[in-house]
C-alpha cells in the first residue's frame, strides 16, 4: 500500500516554512491558449492517474475487507447507511415523484394527439426504471453523500487526523473509504427502488387524473412493459454509480489542500466530478446493456 495518495499535496507546501512563501500581487494576464490547453491536459492526466490510484487502493481495501470481514468498521458503515440512505429517502422520493409527474405530463400531451394515451405508462415506466430513477438518485447522492465525504475527509486532513492515522500504521483507505463505499453501494439501489416506485406513481397520477386511464389498466401496462431485466439493469447502474460517487468523493477529500478553501473546493469538486462520472458511466452501461 502506498501512502503517497493520502499525502499528495504535502510537497507543495512551500509557504509554511517561509522558504518561498511570499505574498505577491500579480497583474491579471491573458494566458495564451496553448498554455491553458497544456495546463488543463496535465491536470486531467494527473487526475486520471489519481483516480486509477484510488481505484487500486479501493480494490486492495475491498479485498482485505472480504478476507477479514471482522476488520471492517461496521458501526461506521451503519452510520453512513443511515446518513446516506434513510436521511436521503424523503428528498429522493419527492424528486422522483415530481420527475415521474413531469415526464407523464409531457408524454400525455404528445401521446394524446395520436390517441395512444396508454403508452404514457410505457414511456414513464421504462424511462424511470432504466434511466431516470438511478440517475436522479445518483444526482441526489452525489450532492449529499459525495460532497459530505469530501468535506469530512478534507477536514480530517486539515486537523492532521489522516496523518495520525498513517503514523498509527493504519491504511486510511480501509478506515475512511470502505465504510462509506459499502454503505453507499448498499443504500443507493434501495433508494433507486423507492425512486422507481414513486416515479411510476407520478406518471400514473397524470395517466389517471389527466388522461382518465383506470388505475388497474395503467398498472397492468407498466407491469407488462417493465420486465425484471430492465429493473435489474437500473439497479446495476445504481450500484456502479454508488462506487463512483463514493470513490470520487473520498479522492477529492484526500486531494484537498490543507486550508478552509480546500475543504470547500473539495466538496464542490466531488459533486461536479461525481455527476460527470455518473453520466459517462451511464452512457457506457446503456450502450453495453443494449448490446446484450
Amino acid at each position: 500500500m502506498s501512502i503517497s495518495l493520502f499525502m499528495s499535496e504535502n510537497k507543495d507546501k512551500v509557504g509554511e516554512n517561509g522558504a518561498s512563501g511570499k505574498f505577491e500581487l500579480h497583474e491579471p494576464q491573458i494566458r495564451p491558449a496553448v498554455e491553458y490547453v497544456g495546463e488543463t491536459s496535465i491536470h486531467l492526466w494527473k487526475d486520471s492517474i489519481n483516480i486509477l490510484a484510488i481505484i487500486g487502493e479501493i480494490a486492495e481495501a475491498v479485498w482485505y475487507a472480504m478476507k477479514n470481514p471482522r476488520k471492517v468498521r461496521w458501526r461506521e458503515t451503519l452510520y453512513y447507511m443511515d446518513v446516506c440512505g434513510a436521511d436521503a429517502l424523503p428528498i429522493s422520493c419527492m424528486i422522483c415523484f415530481l420527475m415521474g409527474l413531469i415526464l407523464g405530463f409531457q408524454a400525455s400531451l404528445q401521446m394524446h394527439k395520436f390517441g395512444t394515451d396508454l403508452y404514457v405508462a410505457d414511456l414513464v415506466g421504462l424511462s424511470v426504471v432504466k434511466e431516470l430513477g438511478p440517475m436522479m438518485v445518483a444526482m441526489i447522492c452525489a450532492g449529499r453523500a459525495g460532497s459530505a465525504f469530501a468535506a469530512e475527509i478534507s477536514t480530517m486532513k486539515v486537523s492532521e487526523e489522516i496523518d495520525a492515522m498513517v503514523t498509527m500504521g493504519f491504511q486510511p483507505s480501509r478506515f475512511l473509504i470502505i465504510p462509506k463505499l459499502l454503505a453507499l453501494v448498499m443504500v443507493m439501489p434501495v433508494l433507486t427502488i423507492f425512486g422507481n416506485v414513486v416515479g411510476i406513481i407520478g406518471g400514473m397520477t397524470v395517466g389517471v387524473y389527466s388522461l382518465g386511464i383506470p388505475i388497474i389498466t395503467y398498472f397492468n401496462r407498466t407491469a407488462l412493459i417493465v420486465t425484471p431485466r430492465f429493473f435489474t439493469e437500473g439497479l446495476i447502474k445504481s450500484a456502479v454509480f454508488a462506487v463512483l460517487i463514493a470513490a470520487v468523493g473520498c479522492l477529492r477529500g484526500f486531494e484537498a489542500k490543507n486550508d478552509t478553501h480546500g475543504v470547500g473546493a473539495a466538496a464542490t469538486s466531488a459533486v461536479v466530478s461525481g455527476i460527470f462520472l455518473v453520466i459517462i458511466a451511464d452512457t457506457l452501461m446503456t450502450y453495453l446493456f443494449s448490446r446484450f
Binding site: S2, S159, E161, G169
Partner: peptide, 22 residues
C-alpha cells in the same frame, strides 16, 4: 509500507492540535 507499519507501531505521535479522531 509493511516495514514502515511495523516501525510506526514502536512510536507514538502527539500532533500540534491533538489530531484526535473527532
Amino acid at each position: 509500507w509493511e516495514e514502515k507499519r511495523r516501525l510506526m507501531k514502536s512510536f507514538g505521535v502527539l500532533y500540534q492540535a491533538g489530531a484526535l479522531f473527532s
